[in-house]
Amino acid sequence: MIDADVIPEIPRGVRVHRDTVRNLWVLLAPERVLPLDDTGQAILDRVDGTSSFGQIVTGLAEAYAAPRDQIAADASEFLTSLQARRVLDLKS
């Protein structure tokens, strides 16, 4: 689980992009694209390089009808997976 005070940040060269042809949000990286589902997009929408993981989870818990622990676990797994693909930095 990501610590609450860790700050996720999308690195230089990677950006969230609206694919108007397919009508979906994607994470665009050099020579790769990661299509985002609604919750993935909601998580990355809150990744601004200044908000901590704890703040992001709090925002998601206010917007979604789900237990905070479940949101934190799912968001942590999602962001860790993006970090492993080198399309997200986790600053501690």
């Binding site: 790769r32 299509p35 919750t39 998601l60 009808a65």
Partner: peptide
């Protein structure tokens, strides 16, 4: 809104 576990797939 309903929460669902986010999925990741990666895409020449």
């Amino acid at each position: 809104m309903a929460w669902s576990k986010p999925t990741i797939r990666e895409i020449g």
